[in-house]
Amino acid sequence: MHPQGRYRTPLLLVLTLLLVFTVLSLSLKRSPALRKVQGLVVAMTAPGLEGLSYVGRSAKQLWLGYFYLVGVRRQNAELQRQLEEFKQRGVHFQEAEQALTRLEALLDLKRQVALPVIGARVIAYDPTLWSRSAIINQGKAQGVKEGLPVLAPQGIVGRIVEVYPEYSKVMLIVDRKSSADAMIQRTRVRGMLKGKGGNRGSLEFVPKSADVQVGDLVLASGLVGLYPKGLVFGKVTAANKKNPGVFQEIEVTPSVDLSTLEEVLVVKVATLTLTEP
């Protein structure tokens, strides 16, 4: 064998390992160069996805809105939207009622829910099972910044983790890296909502003595300031006190179907305005 050929494979192996570990360590240090690479790849590939998604959506709308059931679909969508709006309002009213019963008389009940928002369309997801993220078609040019919360009509979707010139990456609340301060609406018990991958999360650090039941609503506590207080994360779908340790095992299913998102809102200010009289 030629001496050059003899060392080719080990050399390639060493270079490859070096490359992988360099890139990984740069990524952990949040290197701007790698972010630029990511931004470039997204900027080059996302328009294709956006275009195809638009064509698919238009064809689907043409079929469903005209050929399939003219008018009925529009009416159904309007009713669905109204229902979601009333559900969300219902949660807000319950919140206000509980605040009254705790003699929070100073709190102005005219809650200013009109947050400054940017409308965005979800154009892509990470199709692998290793992370839960989505790409939206609003970026730095539209005023999107890292850390801003992203909402859907039914509740919280996630937060912005990367901003590119025309696109942004949203880490969904079920991503394994996602965590947020949350509370049970009924009992005001607080915990840390952590993503578990798939379409579920868990409310952690809740003592076994706390009253948590299946069906309880889990809301953003607003304490860390990441998500606006009172917005819905999801519902408790399982609560186990028989596990070892001092904390309960609480499974939370998001109120938003995070796999079929279409339009979302990016909240420019992550705090609700509460005016005192």
Binding site: L19, V20, V23, L24, L26, S27, L28, L34, V37, Q38, V41, V42, T45, A124, Y125, D126, P127, T128, W130, S131, R132, S133, I135, V161, K169, M171, D175, K177
Partner: peptide, 12 residues
């Protein structure tokens, strides 16, 4: 580029 995992994971 589309994942939230560290850049380099899928590359490796």
């Amino acid at each position: 580029s589309y994942a939230t995992t560290p850049f380099g994971l899928h590359l490796g």
